[in-house]
Design a protein around this nucleic acid. Sequence first.
DNA 1: TCCACACTGAGCCATATGGTTCAGTATTCC
DNA 2: GGAATACTGAACCATATGGCTCAGTGTGGA
Lengths: 121, 121
Amino acid sequence: MVQYSPSRFSASFAALADATRRGVLAQLANGDASISDLADRFDMTLTGMKKHVGVLELAGLVSTEKVGRVRTCRLGPCRLDEELAWLARYRRMWDARFEALDGVIDVLQRKEKARGRQKRR
Amino acid sequence: MVQYSPSRFSASFAALADATRRGVLAQLANGDASISDLADRFDMTLTGMKKHVGVLELAGLVSTEKVGRVRTCRLGPCRLDEELAWLARYRRMWDARFEALDGVIDVLQRKEKARGRQKRR
DNA sequence: TCCACACTGAGCCATATGGTTCAGTATTCC
DNA sequence: GGAATACTGAACCATATGGCTCAGTGTGGA
């Protein structure tokens, strides 16, 4: 089940905050892999990799299925749409904020010039 | 100085992984604020808020300046461009991956139909 | 049947994180 | 000068994180 709780972002961003986990996602973009494959590729114990996969799975970034004795990992249901939207919104606010600042600077500079003209008179 | 080390993403995503810090960014998008302002708004001690601001500052998301006895926080130099690009790239890979999967399913279904036709003969 | 393989879970360890209190220090205002 | 303000830093605490080992458990192949 997909979670839409307020902590969803916390989970996904925290999942992305680790270089190994970002690497795992990149790897899975190339194709599905077992826990052993991943552990091997990232030079880590099975148990260690399992924890990373667990974190990614909780965040919805990876889904896994066990068939026989091997658990296969693939990219999960979360496409990071909302995270992308959050970042995009943040950047719009950032831009707006700095345009506003530029506006203030403009006004100040115009006043400065006006004062200069007055002095010259 | 802005860092472009491999751990840059780790710092920014980790900074975004906390709800309070995301709130601080949203707040600063509305206007600059002192540490006290923020601590007050998020019902936290000054010291606690200072730590959060420190994390955001290290990630380049916030910059601060102390004048007199008050330290003013504003949105920082990092616009999250590369983070946005990373997420966008991930999503493209995600899409590609699932289109490929759809392709496989298509092929399987076509084979299935073909087998059906054979049986009926 | 038996061995090897792939995972799982408990538990340990060092360090990081998110918070606090308390005791400064520097500034501002009266 | 003295009190109030705004921050700063050290130290503490509980919990989380990122790793590990070790001892299972379940599956597949000879």
